[in-house]
């Protein structure tokens, strides 16, 4: 693991499996009557959101609070940023207040990378979505969800997604979720196919470790998971596709298409869904759709990432071992992860 989490492409297979396994441990905490660990007690995490994203922000906030971190929420709207303050000054101001980690959502691709590499601040940086670049915790929670459903909750521990066929459908061009997922799913051994109208596939996609298809129907029967991306209606006005109806007909997932997927195959969506556009209500509300699980899994994944990057003052759960070093806790799944229930 590195000091920051900027891009899913920075994770090795072992890093990614470690995060997924750690997230399974974290998920057990959610099943307890008191959903809280003392791990990040006394440490301060700021959620620095330059873009509105209530769901991602509250997911991080829930993860931080379950790890007992002190949480500061900073929204750019109505703040000094809207009065012209630079990213650098905002970040330095926050760090001067003693922040240990910055969770950043920014509309500009590369803003988290700049924050982590320009010498502006020392805090750990976690990318919560930057422009059309990356959204690594989304990819991790998607991989976590797929592994649970396709490999198994316990059987999945230590495992990757080798040989699983995952199809990602929609606005790839403008999607940081697609980019992150292509990187991470490939690292985890999955075979990824992107499906979109040619206008919504970036020039240069040929070097990505995935296949590209313009035909949804031909990919359904050979998909273990189909991930639908949100398609913004405004794209229609920039001539990416003629009408909403035509988009839905060609690339939307409805009951008929879902029926052509293998029986075990799941439907994923990073949310928020545009029902009637890329997904019908029938599919969204079916048992095969994991959208709500993905939200729950997001909290576990973000707990795991925060834990592994910040290496808490204390082990994740009780029974601290005096010999356990910060480094070993940060880099390896030591017994300190085990919950008391298991012991």
């Amino acid at each position: 693991m590195q000091r920051h989490l900027i891009s899913a492409a920075d994770l090795t297979r072992d890093d990614a499996v470690l995060i997924l396994d750690t997230a399974e441990e974290m998920a057990r905490v959610a099943d307890r009557p008191i959903k809280k660990l003392p791990t990040l007690r006394g440490r301060t995490v700021v959620n620095l959101f330059f873009e509105d994203s209530t769901r991602t922000r509250i997911s991080f906030e829930a993860a931080e609070k379950r790890l007992s971190a002190d949480v500061i929420n900073f929204s750019a709207k109505g703040s000094s940023v809207s009065k012209g303050e630079s990213l650098k000054d905002t970040a330095q101001t926050l760090e001067a207040m003693g922040v240990d980690a910055v969770v950043i959502r920014h509309g500009a691709s590369g803003a988290p990378y700049r924050l982590a590499t320009s010498g502006w601040i020392d805090a750990a940086v976690i990318n919560a979505g930057d422009g059309t670049h990356q959204h690594p915790t989304q990819a991790l929670l998607d991989a976590f969800t797929a592994r649970r459903r396709l490999v198994g909750r316990d059987a999945g521990l230590g495992q990757d997604l080798s040989g699983r066929r995952i199809t990602i459908v929609g606005d790839v061009l403008h999607s940081r979720v697609a980019r992150s997922n292509v990187d991470l799913l490939h690292t985890l051994g999955a075979e990824v196919t992107l499906v979109a109208p040619p206008t919504l596939v970036p020039v240069g996609v040929e070097t990505w470790p995935c296949d590209v298809s313009y035909d949804l129907d031909s990919t359904l029967a050979k998909s273990d998971a189909v991930m639908m991306l949100r398609v913004q209606r405004e794209r229609m006005n920039a001539a990416f596709f003629p009408t909403e109806r035509e988009y839905s007909r060609r690339y939307g997932l409805d009951g008929d298409r879902m029926a052509r997927m293998p029986e075990h195959a799941i439907v994923m969506h990073p949310g928020p869904m545009v029902r009637g556009m890329e997904i019908t209500a029938e599919v969204a509300d079916s048992d095969r759709c994991t959208v709500v699980e993905q939200v729950a899994n997001g909290v576990s994944i973000r707990m795991a990432v925060l834990y592994l990057l910040l290496g808490g003052n204390e082990p994740a759960v009780a029974h601290p071992s005096p010999t356990t070093t910060l480094a070993s806790r940060r880099f390896a799944p030591t017994p300190a992860f085990r919950t008391t229930e298991e012991k």
Binding site: S109, G110, D130, G131, T132, H133, Q134, R176, R179, P202, V203, G204, V205, E206, T207, W208
Partner: peptide, 14 residues
Amino acid sequence: EGIVSAELGLGGWP
């Protein structure tokens, strides 16, 4: 606009 812009998610200048 090309391989690098596709990865970085930066708007392409073709």
